[in-house]
Computed example of a mutant assay.
Amino acid sequence: MSMRITVRVPDDLGDIVKATTDNVSAYVTEALREKIARDRRRKARQNILDGIRDYEGPGVQEGAEEQLHGERRDSYRTRS
């Protein structure tokens, strides 16, 4: 299933996209997936860093490694 979304982009950016690909929808979809994955990874890293700053015990905060692995798995899923 797909959704139609209308967006406005600067003319120069639109010209570059149209010159780069024959399938603007697929191109923009891939770009959005990559951006969303990047944002999720950035947020996960920040959450982990915030947790580490608040943690007063020895070693890495419990669950930090699992959270990173979960974000990586989710990131790979958004690329498909």
Rank of each mutant, 00 (worst) to 15 (best):
T6P: 03
T20N: 03
V17W: 06
D54L: 10
D50Q: 11
I16G: 09
E65L: 14
L13Y: 12
R33K: 07
L68P: 03
T6V: 00
Q46D: 14
T20F: 09
A64E: 08
D54E: 14
L68K: 04
Q67D: 13
V28T: 08
G63D: 01
P58H: 08
G14M: 01
S80L: 12
R38C: 08
V24G: 10
D39G: 09
T78F: 01
E30D: 15
R8V: 02
Q46A: 10
E30A: 15
Q61A: 14
G59P: 05
A26D: 15
D50P: 04
R79G: 01
V28K: 04
P58D: 11
A44V: 01
D15G: 04
R73G: 07
Y55E: 08
G59D: 02
V24P: 00
R41E: 13
R42F: 02
G63K: 10
R40T: 10
R4D: 08
R42Y: 03
V24S: 11
I5Q: 10
R53I: 04
D15F: 10
I5P: 08
G59Q: 05
R45N: 10
A19K: 13
D15W: 00
L13Q: 05
R41T: 15
K43A: 05
I5W: 04
S2N: 12
Y76N: 14
I52C: 09
A37S: 10
T29L: 05
K18M: 12
R8L: 01
S80D: 15
V24R: 14
A19M: 11
R41M: 11
T21W: 02
R8Q: 07
E34R: 05
G59Y: 00
T78E: 12
G59W: 00
S80E: 14
K35T: 12
M1G: 15
H69N: 13
R79T: 02
K18N: 13
R42L: 05
A19N: 13
A64Q: 07
K43Q: 01
G51L: 04
K43N: 00
V7N: 03
A19W: 07
I36H: 06
K43V: 02
A37F: 08
L49Y: 14
A64V: 04
V24E: 12
N23F: 01
R4F: 07
R4T: 14
K18S: 14
A19E: 01
E71A: 07
P10L: 06
L13R: 05
G51A: 07
D15T: 12
Q67H: 11
D11P: 06
E56P: 00
E62L: 10
R8W: 09
V7Y: 09
G57R: 09
V28F: 08
Y27L: 06
Y27F: 15
V9P: 02
I52Y: 07
D39K: 02
R53Y: 09
G70Q: 02
L13W: 09
H69Q: 15
T6A: 06
E65M: 10
R4L: 14
N47P: 07
D11E: 15
Y55K: 08
H69G: 12
D50G: 09
E62D: 15
N47F: 01
N47R: 15
A31H: 07
R53F: 11
Q46Y: 05
R38V: 11
Q46C: 09
S25D: 08
D11W: 07
R73A: 11
S25L: 00
D39W: 00
